[in-house]
Design a protein around this nucleic acid. Structure first.
Lengths: 189, 189, 189, 189
DNA sequence: AATGAATGAGTATTCATTCAT
DNA sequence: TATGAATGAATACTCATTCAT
């Protein structure tokens, strides 16, 4: 991303939104963090909501891309799923702020939140597709792939989020191994 | 719960907080829904935050109790964990609004959110304890029990939340079977 | 004064009004201090304003009486004035709270404040009368007695008030000697 | 003072605060009087208290300056004191509203009031200094200069205030002559 | 006589958005 | 493009007063 004003605002917005949530974040905060005047934000973005959704879209796109990069067409479904989980955990570890935003802002009846879920659902569909493929290939028990995809997403996401607020220090790689083995093989020995 | 004003406010608060989130919920909304004057809320609760935390505490207590009721001391750890997952899903299915609040309001640096996590952690500790017991009894792979407990909580919670906003209709029992088999035995056959 | 509820409220009101001023004082504060329920205050006094004015009236009456007690008809005007100053300083020293109320609440256009000034003026008229007599007796320079009475009242009152908030400790007797010599003989040797 | 918004707010605030006192004055009133939107006040001043203290500081500074302007280093202490009394009475006559504020808002335990007294004390220290000099020069009886300064301030201030609410019309010059002769030479012939 | 739960009008403060420069 | 002063609708919270018991 270029170091133009739009991008400075973008970066500041991630910081502030993840720190305070959508409602508590103020355009003043964002402007100050971005080192631009408040009016400048409105020159680049229609509204606070617009800025927020732009940011979320970029983030989810980035997450999707980074998962897609790990996938080769010849891989089996279960391998793809494993790669996705690994990538999601790495992504959330890297973009901690974004992880908070994703868990916090998607639930509710407002248009902004519906739009958010629409975008998130795009990503979840990826996981769903992998599960579907794995089921067809006989590597995965028969289950509702949509529901399962959300379980996997949620398990990984909340685990990422928890370690953000935990006193314990987790290594990303350890976290991945533990979480993916729970989600892929289950806790039972 | 008695049908006094305090309880009417309590019920209204759950409705409004889950519908709009803490910040978007207004005391006017809550008062209107509860059919009391705004001042009445302040007669019974010190502040918006106080009302919110009271509500959260009651909810988490209720969840914990409903899980504890299913547990017999003679049960194995893995059985306790299974019962807990079942109960959590049933609870979230019954108190849908509360499920939203739990996922949405716990993340951030504000005192209210820290207090929330403190209370939530109490519940998660229950799951952790079951996992620990199951590991000792050789029914569960060696893993970090704290992190695993959050994975289980998050997987189950997000799954509950998703179906709230999904067009599909899930039966609670089906949802439990699927989710718990993912979390307990893993997706891989 | 009897130890009935009315009097308990009266005492509490002086405390609270002098501590917080009329506007910042709440009926809740007063009720709590008086150890009665809030409704009880309204049983004994029509309103907050009513309570306040009752209290002020009692106070000014008390001040007037205590001055009058020191006056003998055969005294010269200048002696009466000196006795009055002494008594006012002693009174303000004894009823510190009341002194604050008198200086703070009398200025403004509200009905309560006009009523206050009407009552205060009654007391000042006493001083005026003494000055008039002293002028007639040739003991006092020719001046506007009304204006002079206020100067005397104000000089003594503010001096009392200042020592309330001062780190220095003044003895009442010293304070009287200094203040009355300034007001009666002037600073110039 | 320039005719910008800040100054319009400043003028309006003096009007409203002196008319209603700090607590009864509303930001709505001030905004309406200043012909600005309420938000504009908050753009220029942090809070009601901030606005109030700014106004008080400006006022006391103005009073101090106007007194200092009358003082020549070669003057005797007693002359300086006389000039100060004259100036204070003229100032209070000119800025009547400010006089009310000074007498009304300085007494109490709130931070705002403490800050007020701190600023007022600065001015009183001037008088104290003059009295001290006069004592050294043998023109003034031995007395506690701090306490005496407050007596002089209070006598002059209350006299000014009284005539604001009196039906009588006083000429500033007359008022000064009377008041200063009381305070400087005493009432006794 | 006394109570205290309930009320709702009133207030300071915040903040997304606009717009003249 | 960019600015930041100005706006005013929105909102948490307060508190004098009422009234059923």
């Amino acid at each position: 991303m270029r170091q133009d004003k739009t991008n400075m605002i973008f970066q500041a917005a991630i910081d502030i939104f993840s720190d305070r949530g959508f409602d508590r974040a103020t355009m003043d905060d964002i402007a100050a963090r971005a080192n631009v005047a408040k009016g400048t934000i409105y020159y680049h973005f229609k509204s606070k909501e617009d800025l927020f959704l732009f940011l979320v879209e970029e983030g989810i796109d980035l997450l999707q891309e980074s998962v897609r990069e790990m996938i080769r067409p010849e891989m089996k479904g279960i391998q793809k799923l494993e790669a996705a989980i690994r990538q999601q955990i790495a992504f959330f570890d890297h973009y901690r702020d974004f992880c908070i935003i994703m868990l916090r802002e998607g639930w509710g009846a407002e248009e902004r939140q519906k739009e958010f879920r629409r975008m998130l659902t795009e990503y979840i569909s990826l996981l769903e597709e992998f599960i579907r493929q794995a089921m067809e290939e006989g590597d995965c028990r028969q289950t509702d792939p949509e529901s399962a995809a959300w379980t996997v997403f949620g398990g990984a996401a909340i685990t990422s989020l928890h370690q953000l607020y935990s006193r314990k220090i987790y290594k990303t790689d350890e976290l991945f191994k533990q979480t993916s083995s729970i989600l892929l093989q289950g806790l039972r020995k």
